[in-house]
Design a protein around this nucleic acid. Sequence first.
DNA 1: CAAAAATAATGAACAGTGTTTAGTAAATCA
DNA 2: TGATTTACTAAACACTGTTCATTATTTTTG
Lengths: 210, 210
Amino acid sequence: MGLAERKEREKNELRELILLKAKEIIQRDGQDKLSIRKIATEIEYSPATIYLYFQDKDEILYQMMDKGFELMAAQMQQVYHEPSAIKRLFLIGRSYLKFGTENQDWYDLMFNSISPMNHIERCKAEWGHGIAIFEFLVSTCREALAESGKTEVDERIMALQLWSTVHGLISLANTQRLLIVDSNCGQGHDCALIDKTMENIMYTLFNYKI
Amino acid sequence: MGLAERKEREKNELRELILLKAKEIIQRDGQDKLSIRKIATEIEYSPATIYLYFQDKDEILYQMMDKGFELMAAQMQQVYHEPSAIKRLFLIGRSYLKFGTENQDWYDLMFNSISPMNHIERCKAEWGHGIAIFEFLVSTCREALAESGKTEVDERIMALQLWSTVHGLISLANTQRLLIVDSNCGQGHDCALIDKTMENIMYTLFNYKI
DNA sequence: CAAAAATAATGAACAGTGTTTAGTAAATCA
DNA sequence: TGATTTACTAAACACTGTTCATTATTTTTG
């Protein structure tokens, strides 16, 4: 019978509608303005209804984190083709920085907030997309270290060092802390200081000049 | 007349009492549990009274940020004596990491939250302690670069790169993101992964082996 | 000393937040 | 049609930051 299926479909549709509206609110008003009640009002349901589709706000934030990874993946696909691993690392870094500073709300959800992580821990789920990206970074590092002849460095540690540096840069930039280094490094227009630092990373770690 | 002075002193005392209680709550319950109403209840005043001494919560958080810098300064003083600039950089980094992971609430206030920064912007004040620490890092970098013969690297960019890396490490560790690299890297007991990465930073940037 | 002015503190409200529960309306099943 | 399941919601709970009219206290002045 197709009835149960239709019911199932309708249930999924409302679930999707909630997530879609959540995404819209984040993009329009920012992550901190996202509230259960706001979603409810805008989709013209009561706040309590949302709790029939999600166990709490953390679960919605977790789903939003996933949407963020989708957005990032779409923006980063173009850099994977570069044949040189060192150049590829540079392009990945630059692309990551661009995404992180231009999509602060999504970046926060993906790499700073604890709320979505609460849901992961509660459901014994994994941080799937995050793990995949890191493992990709590790294998690119292995290649890049081979390219530059640095065989004594652990690629996992190297990958973490690189990740930390670009993540740290994004974090400091997004929280206005870079203003003390360079007062021109505000939001909006891209910051020369960040580009310079990215170049310096590649030079100090792989002797690679842009 | 000593009367106005006594009044002034009493006013400062209540102001200090509020800040002291705020500090106590952060240390006891964490930064996110700090609320105006909680402070008010615990010092046995009404919430409205607090607004006679601070314009809003952001100002209190700004003052708490300052307390955090005091705590950090006390913990870091011992490393300044090291004669070798490169070793000093290593000790600073390790000490910074230790403070950041062991005092997550204070670290968040100092280097992650935007709320205290709102107060700075509103009052056209400066992020005094932060600037001082960064400038100290810059001059130590200048020395360290001279020590290792790397004259072609800009010390300000180098300082920012170092800061970003350790800040990024702390940030990723404190938000559970390091668990994907090493599942043993939870809170509490210190994490070998972080130590290894700190060693790798010193090796890749200054050829310094611990 | 008593009245007036200044200071200090507050109760109550406003506008929000996440979340739970008891109860209602509608759709499906027997 | 009546019973049962499903879908939904109103209202409440316990919070949050913040404002403002009002009260109580203290100080100054006539």
